[in-house]
Each structure stands twice: as structure tokens, then as C-alpha cells.
């Protein structure tokens, strides 16, 4: 008998494709959440591969909080056109028109309104029964316990104590009306895997992942990009620094890190040497020891 020796990236790719096809085959109306970030880019490529030479048989959906970097929106619109995919953009217009901002109502509440409510409303309105997300289990401790097929009740909420057992590669796709499943095809990928895959597959990413000189405010060690939306607190000043974004969120809550990495190889080198995990620059995770778990229970990605 010959041995199977397949590189683990190819193995991860194959597993993710299997997951994506299961959803397309078993659900009536799936959607792929597209956050424009690097993980989304990998997930979209996997979906292309899953249905090649056909087209991706479901739309992408972006939950726009109104605080995304302009480079992200530009990239989004270019990329979906490039790959010929249908894009749905959803916004919680009520909350946006109320001027919801993290500095006004706090980070947690702002996320709940713009992201969680935005997403839950969009899923209900469009009657989606399955939504792909690009989350990885290595990102955060509570995600390590989430299933690949994560059941959500009619309110879109996650119950960590009543999860369906997930065995072998057999995924339970059965739900009642109004209920839905969040599917995470990248569950078993790590940040490094994502970067190596982006490199190997030559997948385009938003340019702000690369280092350039930017105007930033140093807020408790996190570099917040300075723009009209940022209000300087007493004692803060605007600096010009070489920096890049390690993960992409809303501009008021996403910090940059000092970096000289201008190419994907530079980034890989930097991430390998980095001694801090990638969500270190995300203010949303730091509010309490279980902040991500609380958000997830409410229906956050």
C-alpha cells in the first residue's frame, strides 16, 4: 500500500471544500458572510474551488457598520466584480442614523447594534438558513469550543452548553424554520495557515494589511488611525508612523501595529516572529475575560 502524504494546507483546503459543499447541498438558502478581511478572502477562494467550473451558488453578504475603512469598501466592490459573485450589503440603518459610536455608547453596545443586530436582521429579512463565517478556532478561547456547524435558535443565539456533537466528517444540517446554522469552514485553520494559503494561491487582499506611513493616535498602546471620526482625548496627539493592520474591523476600534512589512513574505515573517496574537489590536475583545463568548451567545459571528 502506498502512503498518503499530502501537505496539511491541501488537507485543510480539502476539508473546507467538503464543508462548503455540504452546506450548498443541504440548505435551501445559504449565504457567505464576507467581512473583506484576509480570512474572508480565503473562504471565498475555497468556495470558488468547491464549485469549479461552476459559479458559487450562493451570494456573499457584507454587514456594513458604516465605520469600515474606505480601502475595504473599494476592495470589496472590485473583488466581487472580479470573481463574478453576487454581493448583498446590509446595514442597520436605524442604529447608524442614531449616530451609534463606540465612544458614545461603549464598545460592546456599539458592536451589538451595528454588527450583531445588523446581521440578525439581515438573516431574518433574507430568510437565510445557513451563514458561512470565516472565524477560526485559534482566534479566541470561546471559539475553540464552537462546532463547525454551529446551531442558532430562532433568535440567532448560541447556547454553548447545548451544542450538537460533531463526529467524523458527518455534519447535522437539520433545522426547523426560523432557525439557522452558522458554518465555519476555516475552523481548523490558524493565522499562519491563512497567510501561507494567501501566498501560495496568490489571493488579493485589502492593501491596508501592508505597511505604510499613517497618521495614528496611540491609545493605551494601540495605534488608532486618525480621521474625522476619532475625537482626541486629553493628552493624546497625532503621530505619523509606519504601520499596518493585522486584522480588519471598524476604524474606531481597529488599531494598527508598528510594522515595516510591505509584502506578503514580510508579513509572514513578521507574524511568525510576533509574540502577540492577532486580536491584540481589537478593542472589542478586551472589555472582559469572556467578552467574545458573551457576544457569540447573543448572535455575533
Amino acid at each position: 500500500m502506498k502512503d498518503i502524504n499530502i501537505s496539511y494546507l491541501k488537507q485543510l483546503e480539502s476539508e473546507s471544500i467538503h464543508i462548503i459543499r455540504e452546506v450548498a447541498a443541504e440548505f435551501k438558502n445559504p449565504v457567505m458572510l464576507y467581512s473583506i478581511g484576509k480570512d474572508s478572502s480565503v473562504m471565498v477562494r475555497l468556495a470558488q474551488k468547491a464549485f469549479y467550473p461552476g459559479k458559487i451558488p450562493f451570494p456573499l453578504m457584507h454587514i456594513d457598520t458604516g465605520y469600515k475603512f474606505p480601502e475595504m469598501i473599494k476592495f470589496r466592490d472590485w473583488y466581487v466584480k472580479e470573481i463574478g459573485c453576487r454581493l448583498i450589503v446590509e446595514r442597520n440603518e436605524v442604529a447608524i442614523s442614531e449616530g451609534t459610536h463606540p465612544q458614545k455608547i461603549g464598545v460592546d453596545k456599539c458592536c451589538a447594534k451595528l454588527k450583531t443586530q445588523g446581521l440578525l436582521g439581515a438573516i431574518k429579512r433574507n430568510k437565510f438558513d445557513a451563514a458561512f463565517g470565516g472565524a477560526r478556532r485559534d482566534e479566541e478561547k470561546s471559539r475553540a469550543k464552537e462546532r463547525i456547524f454551529s446551531f442558532r435558535d430562532e433568535f440567532g443565539q448560541w447556547d454553548p452548553k447545548y451544542q450538537r456533537p460533531e463526529l467524523w466528517n458527518l455534519y447535522n444540517c437539520r433545522i426547523n424554520e426560523e432557525e439557522s446554522i452558522r458554518v465555519f469552514p476555516l475552523s481548523n485553520w490558524t493565522e499562519m495557515d491563512v497567510w501561507y494559503y494567501l501566498k501560495n494561491e496568490e489571493i488579493p487582499i485589502v492593501p491596508i494589511y501592508y505597511a505604510q506611513e499613517r497618521e495614528v493616535v496611540d491609545r493605551g498602546g494601540i495605534l488608532i488611525p486618525y480621521d474625522d471620526m476619532v475625537k482626541l482625548k486629553p493628552g493624546e496627539k497625532v503621530e505619523k508612523l509606519m504601520c499596518r493592520f493585522r486584522s480588519l474591523g471598524c476604524s474606531p476600534c481597529t488599531g494598527a501595529v508598528r510594522s515595516e512589512a510591505r509584502t506578503i513574505d514580510d508579513i509572514i515573517k513578521e507574524v511568525e516572529e510576533a509574540s502577540k496574537s492577532e486580536r491584540e489590536n481589537r478593542i472589542i475583545d478586551m472589555t472582559s475575560d469572556s467578552s467574545m463568548e458573551d457576544k457569540k451567545k447573543e448572535g455575533y459571528f
Partner: peptide
């Protein structure tokens, strides 16, 4: 990983690392 586990110092569910 989960808040309940950290409080009680036990592991409740299968976790992947």
C-alpha cells in the same frame, strides 16, 4: 475556554487546539 469553566476550574466541552 468558557466562562463557566474558568469559574469552576473544569472543562465542559470538547475544545480544539
Amino acid at each position: 475556554g468558557l466562562a463557566a469553566e474558568r469559574e469552576q476550574g473544569i472543562t465542559i466541552d470538547v475544545a480544539y487546539r
